[in-house]
């Protein structure tokens, strides 16, 4: 059971990261490349949160029901870091989409093979 959990959670995170990388490397459509970046981001976030999880732990919030009972709590540090990572990921996606819009305006296509100016 424990081995299954380890493999499934870390495996899912790695699968998402590799899926995103595959989309970035293989897809021709610029929008799909941006989606790939975003998927790889989600995999990284899942990995971070999974590393900080502790069996039977609750969210690190001292609500009246939990305060003073000595309940096990998960590690709050990776969660705080993931919050930062999500915001940065949002900024990256927004700027990448803006660049896609700009390229579409110039070339009237989102297919990366038809944009020849980038080749030398």
């Amino acid at each position: 059971m424990q081995a299954f959990l380890t493999y499934s959670i870390y495996g899912t995170a790695l699968f998402l990261m590799l899926l995103g990388l595959y989309a970035v490397l293989m897809k021709k459509n610029l929008i799909k490349i941006v989606i790939g970046l975003s998927v790889a981001d989600s995999g990284l976030h899942l990995l971070f949160v999974a590393v900080g999880y502790i069996n039977g732990g609750t969210a690190p919030i001292f609500s009246p029901a939990v305060a003073g009972t000595g309940t096990v709590m998960t590690d709050p540090v990776p969660q705080a870091l993931v919050l930062t990572a999500i915001v940065i990921g949002f900024g990256v996606t927004a700027v990448a989409l803006a660049l896609v819009v700009r390229l579409y305006r110039k070339h009237n296509t989102t297919n990366i093979d038809e944009i020849k100016n980038l080749k030398w």
Binding site: L5, T6, Y10, L14, A50, V51, I54, N55, D75, P76
Partner: peptide, 24 residues
């Protein structure tokens, strides 16, 4: 290589001897 690295990290165990307790 990533999977072989991460399988050595036990899922759900308190293995990070970090700053968690200080914050909590």
């Amino acid at each position: 290589y990533l999977l072989s690295a991460f399988v050595s990290i036990p899922f759900g165990e308190d293995f990070i001897n970090g700053v968690k307790d200080f914050y909590l």
